[in-house]
Design a protein around this nucleic acid. Structure first.
Lengths: 215, 215
DNA sequence: GCAATAATAAAACGAACGTTCAATTAATTC
DNA sequence: GAATTAATTGAACGTTCGTTTTATTATTGC
Protein backbone atom coordinates (compact mmCIF):
# COMPACT_ATOMS: atom_id res chain seq x y z
CA UNK A 1 0.00 0.00 0.00
CA UNK A 2 0.95 3.63 -0.17
CA UNK A 3 -0.95 6.90 0.21
CA UNK A 4 -4.15 6.33 2.12
CA UNK A 5 -7.52 7.86 1.31
CA UNK A 6 -8.20 11.06 3.17
CA UNK A 7 -4.57 11.55 4.15
CA UNK A 8 -3.63 15.15 4.83
CA UNK A 9 -0.17 16.40 5.69
CA UNK A 10 -1.28 19.18 7.99
CA UNK A 11 -3.55 16.96 10.01
CA UNK A 12 -0.97 14.23 10.26
CA UNK A 13 1.69 16.64 11.47
CA UNK A 14 -0.65 18.05 14.10
CA UNK A 15 -1.52 14.53 15.23
CA UNK A 16 2.17 13.68 15.46
CA UNK A 17 2.91 16.69 17.65
CA UNK A 18 0.01 15.99 19.94
CA UNK A 19 0.81 12.31 20.31
CA UNK A 20 4.50 13.06 20.80
CA UNK A 21 3.88 15.49 23.68
CA UNK A 22 1.62 12.99 25.37
CA UNK A 23 3.91 10.01 24.85
CA UNK A 24 7.13 11.78 25.81
CA UNK A 25 5.47 13.17 28.93
CA UNK A 26 4.32 9.70 29.90
CA UNK A 27 7.26 7.52 28.89
CA UNK A 28 10.14 9.94 28.50
CA UNK A 29 11.88 10.92 25.28
CA UNK A 30 14.41 8.10 25.26
CA UNK A 31 11.85 5.47 26.13
CA UNK A 32 9.45 6.49 23.37
CA UNK A 33 10.24 4.79 20.08
CA UNK A 34 9.38 6.25 16.71
CA UNK A 35 7.38 3.12 15.96
CA UNK A 36 5.36 3.63 19.13
CA UNK A 37 4.66 7.22 18.20
CA UNK A 38 3.68 6.20 14.68
CA UNK A 39 1.31 3.58 16.00
CA UNK A 40 -0.35 6.16 18.24
CA UNK A 41 -0.93 8.36 15.21
CA UNK A 42 -2.07 5.41 13.11
CA UNK A 43 0.73 5.51 10.60
CA UNK A 44 3.98 3.73 9.77
CA UNK A 45 7.21 4.94 11.36
CA UNK A 46 8.67 6.05 8.03
CA UNK A 47 5.84 8.53 7.56
CA UNK A 48 7.06 10.56 10.55
CA UNK A 49 10.21 11.49 8.67
CA UNK A 50 8.21 13.51 6.19
CA UNK A 51 7.54 16.02 8.98
CA UNK A 52 10.57 15.81 11.25
CA UNK A 53 14.01 14.89 9.90
CA UNK A 54 15.11 13.25 13.16
CA UNK A 55 13.70 12.30 16.52
CA UNK A 56 15.66 15.08 18.17
CA UNK A 57 14.27 17.62 15.70
CA UNK A 58 10.82 16.61 16.82
CA UNK A 59 11.72 17.09 20.49
CA UNK A 60 13.36 20.43 19.85
CA UNK A 61 10.38 21.71 17.87
CA UNK A 62 8.01 20.82 20.68
CA UNK A 63 10.20 22.50 23.28
CA UNK A 64 10.89 25.64 21.27
CA UNK A 65 7.25 26.22 20.50
CA UNK A 66 6.32 25.63 24.11
CA UNK A 67 8.81 28.21 25.34
CA UNK A 68 7.75 30.67 22.65
CA UNK A 69 4.17 30.18 23.75
CA UNK A 70 5.10 30.88 27.36
CA UNK A 71 6.90 34.10 26.46
CA UNK A 72 4.05 35.21 24.21
CA UNK A 73 1.50 34.49 26.90
CA UNK A 74 3.43 36.68 29.31
CA UNK A 75 3.77 39.48 26.75
CA UNK A 76 0.01 39.43 26.40
CA UNK A 77 -0.67 39.22 30.13
CA UNK A 78 1.90 41.76 31.30
CA UNK A 79 0.01 44.70 32.82
CA UNK A 80 0.60 48.32 31.95
CA UNK A 81 0.81 49.17 35.64
CA UNK A 82 4.17 49.87 37.24
CA UNK A 83 2.96 48.66 40.64
CA UNK A 84 5.08 45.62 41.59
CA UNK A 85 2.13 43.96 43.31
CA UNK A 86 0.04 44.19 40.16
CA UNK A 87 2.87 42.87 38.04
CA UNK A 88 3.67 40.02 40.39
CA UNK A 89 0.00 39.10 40.52
CA UNK A 90 -0.16 38.99 36.73
CA UNK A 91 3.02 36.91 36.57
CA UNK A 92 1.76 34.33 39.03
CA UNK A 93 -1.66 34.08 37.43
CA UNK A 94 -0.24 33.75 33.94
CA UNK A 95 2.35 31.20 35.01
CA UNK A 96 -0.10 28.94 36.76
CA UNK A 97 -2.77 29.19 34.09
CA UNK A 98 -0.26 28.42 31.34
CA UNK A 99 1.34 25.51 33.13
CA UNK A 100 -1.88 23.88 34.22
CA UNK A 101 -3.22 24.24 30.69
CA UNK A 102 -0.15 22.61 29.19
CA UNK A 103 0.93 20.11 31.80
CA UNK A 104 2.32 17.57 29.35
CA UNK A 105 4.28 20.07 27.29
CA UNK A 106 5.72 21.62 30.44
CA UNK A 107 6.80 18.22 31.64
CA UNK A 108 8.58 17.63 28.36
CA UNK A 109 10.29 21.03 28.35
CA UNK A 110 11.50 20.63 31.91
CA UNK A 111 12.52 16.99 31.93
CA UNK A 112 14.04 16.30 28.53
CA UNK A 113 16.57 19.08 28.25
CA UNK A 114 19.46 16.64 28.44
CA UNK A 115 18.42 15.00 25.20
CA UNK A 116 19.09 18.15 23.21
CA UNK A 117 22.37 18.94 21.47
CA UNK A 118 24.50 21.57 23.17
CA UNK A 119 23.53 24.27 20.70
CA UNK A 120 19.81 23.61 20.98
CA UNK A 121 19.98 23.32 24.75
CA UNK A 122 21.53 26.77 24.86
CA UNK A 123 18.73 28.10 22.68
CA UNK A 124 16.01 26.77 24.98
CA UNK A 125 17.80 27.89 28.14
CA UNK A 126 18.13 31.38 26.70
CA UNK A 127 14.36 31.60 26.41
CA UNK A 128 13.88 30.24 29.88
CA UNK A 129 16.33 32.72 31.35
CA UNK A 130 14.56 35.59 29.62
CA UNK A 131 11.29 34.47 31.17
CA UNK A 132 12.81 34.17 34.63
CA UNK A 133 14.43 37.57 34.29
CA UNK A 134 10.98 39.13 34.04
CA UNK A 135 10.21 37.86 37.52
CA UNK A 136 13.54 39.01 38.92
CA UNK A 137 12.89 42.48 37.58
CA UNK A 138 9.51 42.63 39.26
CA UNK A 139 10.99 41.48 42.57
CA UNK A 140 13.88 43.94 42.35
CA UNK A 141 11.58 46.87 41.53
CA UNK A 142 9.31 45.91 44.40
CA UNK A 143 12.22 45.63 46.79
CA UNK A 144 13.60 49.02 45.75
CA UNK A 145 10.28 50.70 46.29
CA UNK A 146 9.98 48.95 49.62
CA UNK A 147 6.78 47.10 48.86
CA UNK A 148 8.54 43.71 48.92
CA UNK A 149 10.90 42.38 51.56
CA UNK A 150 13.32 40.12 49.69
CA UNK A 151 16.86 39.39 50.78
CA UNK A 152 18.03 37.82 47.52
CA UNK A 153 16.18 38.55 44.30
CA UNK A 154 17.69 35.71 42.28
CA UNK A 155 17.15 33.09 44.94
CA UNK A 156 13.60 34.23 45.58
CA UNK A 157 12.77 34.15 41.88
CA UNK A 158 14.02 30.59 41.55
CA UNK A 159 12.16 29.49 44.66
CA UNK A 160 8.92 31.02 43.39
CA UNK A 161 9.23 29.52 39.94
CA UNK A 162 9.96 26.07 41.34
CA UNK A 163 7.01 26.39 43.68
CA UNK A 164 4.61 27.53 40.97
CA UNK A 165 5.74 25.10 38.29
CA UNK A 166 5.47 22.30 40.80
CA UNK A 167 1.72 22.64 40.61
CA UNK A 168 1.71 20.36 37.57
CA UNK A 169 3.14 17.53 39.64
CA UNK A 170 0.19 17.12 41.96
CA UNK A 171 -2.68 19.15 40.48
CA UNK A 172 -5.33 17.24 38.57
CA UNK A 173 -8.28 19.16 37.09
CA UNK A 174 -11.63 18.07 38.44
CA UNK A 175 -10.33 16.87 41.77
CA UNK A 176 -10.61 18.46 45.18
CA UNK A 177 -9.47 21.94 44.18
CA UNK A 178 -10.44 24.09 41.20
CA UNK A 179 -7.98 26.08 39.11
CA UNK A 180 -9.36 29.29 40.58
CA UNK A 181 -8.83 28.08 44.13
CA UNK A 182 -5.33 26.85 43.40
CA UNK A 183 -4.38 30.11 41.73
CA UNK A 184 -5.72 32.13 44.66
CA UNK A 185 -3.76 30.03 47.12
CA UNK A 186 -0.52 30.31 45.17
CA UNK A 187 -1.03 34.04 44.82
CA UNK A 188 -1.55 34.36 48.55
CA UNK A 189 1.52 32.26 49.33
CA UNK A 190 3.60 34.25 46.86
CA UNK A 191 2.64 37.59 48.38
CA UNK A 192 3.43 36.38 51.85
CA UNK A 193 6.70 34.87 50.72
CA UNK A 194 7.93 38.16 49.26
CA UNK A 195 6.66 40.04 52.30
CA UNK A 196 4.31 42.18 50.25
CA UNK A 197 2.78 45.07 52.17
CA UNK A 198 -0.76 46.32 51.67
CA UNK A 199 -0.05 49.50 49.77
CA UNK A 200 -3.59 50.58 48.93
CA UNK A 201 -5.83 48.62 51.28
CA UNK A 202 -7.86 49.63 54.33
CA UNK A 203 -5.02 48.97 56.75
CA UNK A 204 -2.91 52.01 57.70
CA UNK A 205 0.85 51.37 57.91
CA UNK A 206 1.95 52.38 61.39
CA UNK A 207 5.64 53.01 61.97
CA UNK A 208 8.18 50.24 61.42
CA UNK A 209 5.80 47.37 61.84
CA UNK A 210 4.16 46.38 58.59
CA UNK A 211 1.32 43.94 58.31
CA UNK A 212 1.73 40.98 56.00
CA UNK A 213 -0.93 40.43 53.38
CA UNK A 214 -3.75 38.65 55.14
CA UNK A 215 -5.44 36.60 52.41
CA UNK B 1 40.90 -13.03 30.66
CA UNK B 2 38.80 -13.53 33.76
CA UNK B 3 39.12 -12.47 37.36
CA UNK B 4 41.50 -9.53 37.64
CA UNK B 5 44.11 -9.00 40.31
CA UNK B 6 42.85 -7.05 43.28
CA UNK B 7 39.20 -7.45 42.30
CA UNK B 8 36.81 -7.20 45.24
CA UNK B 9 33.08 -7.67 45.08
CA UNK B 10 32.20 -5.09 47.71
CA UNK B 11 34.33 -2.41 46.16
CA UNK B 12 33.01 -3.13 42.69
CA UNK B 13 29.41 -2.97 43.83
CA UNK B 14 30.00 0.35 45.58
CA UNK B 15 31.69 1.70 42.47
CA UNK B 16 28.74 0.55 40.36
CA UNK B 17 26.24 2.33 42.58
CA UNK B 18 28.21 5.52 42.61
CA UNK B 19 28.78 5.54 38.88
CA UNK B 20 25.16 4.66 38.21
CA UNK B 21 23.80 7.56 40.25
CA UNK B 22 26.11 9.95 38.48
CA UNK B 23 25.43 8.60 35.00
CA UNK B 24 21.67 8.33 35.39
CA UNK B 25 21.51 11.85 36.80
CA UNK B 26 23.48 13.15 33.85
CA UNK B 27 22.10 11.11 30.96
CA UNK B 28 18.85 9.70 32.24
CA UNK B 29 18.08 6.08 33.01
CA UNK B 30 16.97 5.09 29.53
CA UNK B 31 19.87 6.85 27.87
CA UNK B 32 22.49 5.17 30.03
CA UNK B 33 23.58 1.80 28.67
CA UNK B 34 24.91 -0.99 30.80
CA UNK B 35 28.07 -0.96 28.70
CA UNK B 36 28.55 2.72 29.42
CA UNK B 37 28.11 2.12 33.13
CA UNK B 38 30.52 -0.79 33.03
CA UNK B 39 33.13 1.32 31.24
CA UNK B 40 32.80 4.01 33.89
CA UNK B 41 33.50 1.41 36.56
CA UNK B 42 36.33 -0.12 34.54
CA UNK B 43 34.71 -3.49 34.01
CA UNK B 44 32.85 -5.46 31.35
CA UNK B 45 29.07 -5.19 31.11
CA UNK B 46 28.55 -8.81 32.09
CA UNK B 47 30.22 -8.18 35.45
CA UNK B 48 27.38 -5.84 36.47
CA UNK B 49 24.96 -8.74 36.50
CA UNK B 50 26.77 -10.30 39.41
CA UNK B 51 25.45 -7.45 41.58
CA UNK B 52 22.14 -6.46 40.02
CA UNK B 53 19.99 -8.99 38.17
CA UNK B 54 18.54 -6.38 35.80
CA UNK B 55 18.98 -2.73 34.92
CA UNK B 56 15.68 -1.91 36.58
CA UNK B 57 16.76 -3.67 39.77
CA UNK B 58 19.74 -1.36 39.86
CA UNK B 59 17.53 1.71 39.47
CA UNK B 60 15.08 0.54 42.09
CA UNK B 61 17.83 -0.20 44.58
CA UNK B 62 19.27 3.29 44.18
CA UNK B 63 15.87 4.89 44.61
CA UNK B 64 14.77 2.81 47.56
CA UNK B 65 17.96 3.42 49.48
CA UNK B 66 17.73 7.12 48.74
CA UNK B 67 14.22 7.34 50.09
CA UNK B 68 15.12 5.25 53.12
CA UNK B 69 18.01 7.61 53.74
CA UNK B 70 15.71 10.60 53.58
CA UNK B 71 13.27 9.10 56.06
CA UNK B 72 16.07 8.08 58.38
CA UNK B 73 17.62 11.52 58.22
CA UNK B 74 14.31 13.03 59.25
CA UNK B 75 13.85 10.53 62.09
CA UNK B 76 17.22 11.61 63.39
CA UNK B 77 16.60 15.32 62.91
CA UNK B 78 13.04 15.46 64.23
CA UNK B 79 13.04 17.56 67.37
CA UNK B 80 11.46 16.54 70.64
CA UNK B 81 9.71 19.90 70.83
CA UNK B 82 6.01 20.13 70.09
CA UNK B 83 6.33 23.73 68.91
CA UNK B 84 5.31 23.82 65.23
CA UNK B 85 7.89 26.51 64.46
CA UNK B 86 10.70 24.37 65.85
CA UNK B 87 9.46 21.35 63.95
CA UNK B 88 9.04 23.23 60.69
CA UNK B 89 12.50 24.70 61.09
CA UNK B 90 13.99 21.26 61.57
CA UNK B 91 12.08 19.92 58.56
CA UNK B 92 13.29 22.67 56.27
CA UNK B 93 16.87 22.45 57.45
CA UNK B 94 16.97 18.69 57.13
CA UNK B 95 15.33 18.72 53.73
CA UNK B 96 17.69 21.24 52.23
CA UNK B 97 20.82 19.76 53.77
CA UNK B 98 19.88 16.28 52.59
CA UNK B 99 18.98 17.34 49.08
CA UNK B 100 21.99 19.52 48.52
CA UNK B 101 24.22 16.78 49.83
CA UNK B 102 22.70 14.21 47.48
CA UNK B 103 21.83 16.23 44.41
CA UNK B 104 22.42 13.43 41.92
CA UNK B 105 20.50 10.80 43.84
CA UNK B 106 17.60 13.19 44.34
CA UNK B 107 17.54 13.89 40.64
CA UNK B 108 17.34 10.18 39.95
CA UNK B 109 14.61 9.56 42.50
CA UNK B 110 12.50 12.42 41.21
CA UNK B 111 12.97 12.03 37.47
CA UNK B 112 13.09 8.32 36.79
CA UNK B 113 9.95 7.13 38.55
CA UNK B 114 8.33 6.24 35.25
CA UNK B 115 10.95 3.61 34.54
CA UNK B 116 9.85 1.52 37.50
CA UNK B 117 7.33 -1.29 37.34
CA UNK B 118 3.93 -0.49 38.79
CA UNK B 119 4.59 -2.41 41.99
CA UNK B 120 7.93 -0.78 42.63
CA UNK B 121 6.62 2.64 41.76
CA UNK B 122 3.96 2.19 44.40
CA UNK B 123 6.60 1.20 46.92
CA UNK B 124 8.67 4.35 46.30
CA UNK B 125 5.63 6.61 46.28
CA UNK B 126 4.52 5.17 49.60
CA UNK B 127 7.78 6.28 51.16
CA UNK B 128 7.52 9.69 49.57
CA UNK B 129 3.98 10.14 50.81
CA UNK B 130 5.03 9.19 54.33
CA UNK B 131 7.73 11.84 54.20
CA UNK B 132 5.35 14.49 52.91
CA UNK B 133 2.80 13.58 55.55
CA UNK B 134 5.27 14.62 58.23
CA UNK B 135 5.20 18.14 56.82
CA UNK B 136 1.43 18.20 56.53
CA UNK B 137 1.14 17.21 60.17
CA UNK B 138 3.42 20.03 61.24
CA UNK B 139 1.44 22.53 59.22
CA UNK B 140 -1.88 21.27 60.51
CA UNK B 141 -0.73 21.36 64.13
CA UNK B 142 0.58 24.87 63.64
CA UNK B 143 -2.65 26.00 62.03
CA UNK B 144 -4.74 24.52 64.83
CA UNK B 145 -2.70 26.25 67.49
CA UNK B 146 -2.93 29.45 65.48
CA UNK B 147 0.78 29.93 65.00
CA UNK B 148 0.52 29.33 61.22
CA UNK B 149 -1.95 30.88 58.81
CA UNK B 150 -2.53 28.26 56.14
CA UNK B 151 -5.69 27.95 54.10
CA UNK B 152 -4.96 24.48 52.67
CA UNK B 153 -2.53 22.18 54.45
CA UNK B 154 -2.06 19.76 51.58
CA UNK B 155 -1.54 22.42 48.96
CA UNK B 156 0.88 24.34 51.15
CA UNK B 157 2.90 21.22 51.89
CA UNK B 158 3.26 20.44 48.20
CA UNK B 159 4.21 24.01 47.39
CA UNK B 160 6.86 24.04 50.11
CA UNK B 161 8.36 20.73 49.08
CA UNK B 162 8.53 21.73 45.45
CA UNK B 163 10.14 25.01 46.42
CA UNK B 164 12.71 23.40 48.70
CA UNK B 165 13.58 20.49 46.44
CA UNK B 166 13.99 22.93 43.56
CA UNK B 167 17.16 24.13 45.21
CA UNK B 168 19.07 21.30 43.55
CA UNK B 169 18.18 22.68 40.12
CA UNK B 170 20.08 25.92 40.43
CA UNK B 171 22.30 25.62 43.50
CA UNK B 172 25.97 24.82 42.93
CA UNK B 173 28.29 24.56 45.95
CA UNK B 174 31.10 27.06 45.90
CA UNK B 175 29.28 29.68 43.88
CA UNK B 176 27.75 32.95 44.99
CA UNK B 177 25.82 31.59 47.95
CA UNK B 178 26.88 29.19 50.70
CA UNK B 179 24.74 26.36 51.98
CA UNK B 180 24.21 28.24 55.22
CA UNK B 181 22.98 31.33 53.41
CA UNK B 182 20.69 29.36 51.16
CA UNK B 183 19.22 27.46 54.08
CA UNK B 184 18.62 30.67 56.01
CA UNK B 185 16.86 32.22 53.03
CA UNK B 186 14.64 29.21 52.46
CA UNK B 187 13.79 29.08 56.14
CA UNK B 188 12.84 32.73 56.09
CA UNK B 189 10.71 32.31 52.96
CA UNK B 190 9.03 29.25 54.43
CA UNK B 191 8.09 31.00 57.66
CA UNK B 192 6.66 33.94 55.79
CA UNK B 193 4.78 31.66 53.40
CA UNK B 194 3.02 29.85 56.24
CA UNK B 195 2.35 33.15 58.01
CA UNK B 196 4.28 32.11 61.09
CA UNK B 197 3.86 34.43 64.05
CA UNK B 198 6.58 35.22 66.56
CA UNK B 199 5.39 33.17 69.50
CA UNK B 200 8.28 33.62 71.92
CA UNK B 201 10.17 36.68 70.69
CA UNK B 202 10.40 40.22 72.01
CA UNK B 203 7.34 41.37 70.12
CA UNK B 204 4.09 41.32 72.08
CA UNK B 205 1.03 40.13 70.19
CA UNK B 206 -1.56 42.91 70.36
CA UNK B 207 -5.12 42.07 69.44
CA UNK B 208 -5.92 40.69 66.01
CA UNK B 209 -2.96 42.09 64.15
CA UNK B 210 0.00 39.72 64.16
CA UNK B 211 3.45 40.54 62.89
CA UNK B 212 4.99 38.32 60.27
CA UNK B 213 8.39 36.85 60.99
CA UNK B 214 10.87 39.55 60.13
CA UNK B 215 14.02 37.67 59.12
C1' DG C 1 49.75 -26.45 47.84
C1' DC C 2 45.24 -28.08 46.73
C1' DA C 3 40.34 -27.66 46.53
C1' DA C 4 36.62 -24.50 46.61
C1' DT C 5 34.75 -20.27 45.62
C1' DA C 6 34.52 -15.44 43.99
C1' DA C 7 35.09 -12.21 40.27
C1' DT C 8 35.63 -11.28 35.94
C1' DA C 9 36.29 -11.44 30.51
C1' DA C 10 34.86 -12.64 25.99
C1' DA C 11 31.60 -13.84 22.89
C1' DA C 12 27.22 -14.37 21.49
C1' DC C 13 21.80 -13.98 21.61
C1' DG C 14 17.58 -12.14 19.73
C1' DA C 15 15.15 -7.99 19.84
C1' DA C 16 14.56 -3.32 19.18
C1' DC C 17 16.32 0.99 17.79
C1' DG C 18 16.51 5.33 14.42
C1' DT C 19 16.63 5.92 9.82
C1' DT C 20 16.62 5.25 4.56
C1' DC C 21 14.86 3.86 0.17
C1' DA C 22 12.04 2.37 -3.48
C1' DA C 23 7.50 1.47 -4.76
C1' DT C 24 2.70 2.69 -4.74
C1' DT C 25 -1.47 5.09 -4.42
C1' DA C 26 -4.42 9.41 -3.51
C1' DA C 27 -5.17 14.08 -4.46
C1' DT C 28 -4.43 18.03 -7.24
C1' DT C 29 -3.51 20.72 -11.37
C1' DC C 30 -4.32 21.95 -15.97
C1' DG D 1 -8.27 12.49 -18.17
C1' DA D 2 -3.36 12.78 -18.21
C1' DA D 3 0.54 14.60 -15.69
C1' DT D 4 2.20 16.05 -11.50
C1' DT D 5 2.67 16.24 -6.77
C1' DA D 6 1.71 14.74 -1.91
C1' DA D 7 1.42 11.12 1.41
C1' DT D 8 2.29 6.83 2.82
C1' DT D 9 3.70 1.82 2.98
C1' DG D 10 6.76 -2.14 3.46
C1' DA D 11 11.06 -3.80 3.63
C1' DA D 12 15.52 -3.34 4.77
C1' DC D 13 20.10 -1.30 6.83
C1' DG D 14 23.57 -1.24 10.26
C1' DT D 15 23.82 -0.41 15.32
C1' DT D 16 23.02 -0.86 19.78
C1' DC D 17 20.49 -2.64 23.48
C1' DG D 18 19.88 -5.74 27.88
C1' DT D 19 21.09 -10.08 29.00
C1' DT D 20 23.05 -15.01 29.09
C1' DT D 21 26.48 -18.47 28.76
C1' DT D 22 30.87 -20.38 29.13
C1' DA D 23 35.52 -20.26 30.14
C1' DT D 24 39.26 -18.45 32.85
C1' DT D 25 41.78 -16.53 36.48
C1' DA D 26 42.40 -14.63 41.34
C1' DT D 27 41.55 -15.32 46.03
C1' DT D 28 40.38 -17.89 50.14
C1' DG D 29 40.06 -21.82 53.40
C1' DC D 30 42.04 -25.84 54.95
Amino acid sequence: MARTTGSDGEKTEAAVREAAVSLIARLGYEAMSMRQLAAEVGVQAAALYRYFPTKEDLLFTLMREHMEGLLEAWEAARPASVDPVDRLTAYVENHIAFHIGRRHATHVSNMELRSLSHERLTQILKMRTAYEKELRTILRDGAEVGVFQVDDTGLTAMALIQMMTGVIVWFRPGERLSIVEVTASYLSMTMRLVGATISHGTARPSGRARDAVAL
